[in-house]
Simulated assay, not measured.
Amino acid sequence: MTIAVCPGSFDPITSGHVDVVKRARGMFDEVIVAVARNAHKNYFFSDEDRLSLAQGALADIDGVHVEFVDGLIADFAVRKNAAAIVKGLRGAADYDAEQAMSLLNRHLSGIETIFIMGDPALGHVASSFVKDIASHGGPIEDLVPRNVAIALKKKVETK
């Protein structure tokens, strides 16, 4: 069985993330979506909420499950016997940001990173944009899974 780890902060998971996970699942027997913590980021949603939202958004995709990882993705991928780490790219800026990380992960674990180009129709969708739109009362329903849209609206109302 081939396993891929698809890491990210998923704050929150978007339709672009879901697209990449679905396409990765077409290449691997199992995809583990690794909701990660980056000490340099301030998250909108708690670790538990990010995990729960990703689980809800991906629940109907066989062979995909979501786990929280607090540590190095390279170590997590080794523990899970992953054949690859999968990252989605929207364009050149994403590649520039991900290239060094992929080389470092390979250095630490021997596991290659596979880049999947995001659907061009979703190339403008980023978690940061979605949070900004939601905080200003804008429409987000076509940018994120339904459970995420509901959670974002509730979160914005309570802030």
Results as ranks from 00 to 15, higher is better:
151 A>I: 12
115 F>Q: 07
31 V>Y: 04
46 S>A: 09
54 A>Y: 05
101 M>R: 11
61 I>N: 00
104 L>A: 13
42 N>P: 05
58 L>A: 05
123 G>V: 06
7 P>G: 01
33 V>A: 00
50 R>N: 06
46 S>F: 08
83 A>S: 15
87 K>H: 05
21 V>M: 11
79 R>V: 05
130 V>M: 00
3 I>S: 11
10 F>T: 05
65 H>E: 09
116 I>P: 02
28 F>A: 09
115 F>S: 02
39 A>K: 12
61 I>W: 03
46 S>M: 05
36 A>H: 03
7 P>R: 02
51 L>V: 13
23 R>A: 01
122 L>E: 04
35 V>E: 02
17 H>G: 03
80 K>H: 11
124 H>D: 10
140 I>Q: 00
148 V>H: 01
22 K>I: 15
60 D>F: 13
43 Y>W: 09
30 E>R: 15
99 Q>R: 15
40 H>M: 14
77 A>Y: 05
3 I>N: 08
137 G>T: 04
39 A>F: 08
154 K>Y: 12
103 L>M: 15
27 M>L: 15
137 G>L: 04
127 S>E: 02
23 R>K: 14
72 L>P: 03
116 I>F: 10
13 I>L: 07
108 L>C: 04
64 V>L: 07
38 N>Q: 11
154 K>C: 10
82 A>T: 03
82 A>Y: 04
121 A>Y: 00
28 F>C: 00
17 H>E: 07
83 A>Q: 14
9 S>A: 07
118 G>S: 10
124 H>M: 13
99 Q>M: 15
116 I>D: 00
132 D>H: 11
29 D>R: 11
52 S>R: 15
38 N>L: 05
72 L>V: 10
33 V>R: 02
17 H>T: 02
32 I>L: 08
33 V>D: 01
93 A>T: 13
91 G>N: 12
1 M>R: 12
86 V>S: 01
75 D>Q: 14
146 R>P: 13
120 P>G: 01
157 E>A: 15
158 T>L: 13
153 K>N: 11
6 C>L: 13
54 A>R: 02
106 R>Y: 14
124 H>T: 14
152 L>Q: 06
140 I>D: 02
65 H>G: 06
37 R>T: 14
109 S>T: 03
47 D>H: 12
153 K>E: 11
25 R>N: 04
126 A>L: 09
136 H>C: 10
86 V>Q: 07
57 A>L: 09
57 A>R: 03
134 A>S: 08
12 P>R: 08
139 P>Y: 13
10 F>P: 06
135 S>K: 14
58 L>G: 04
94 D>S: 07
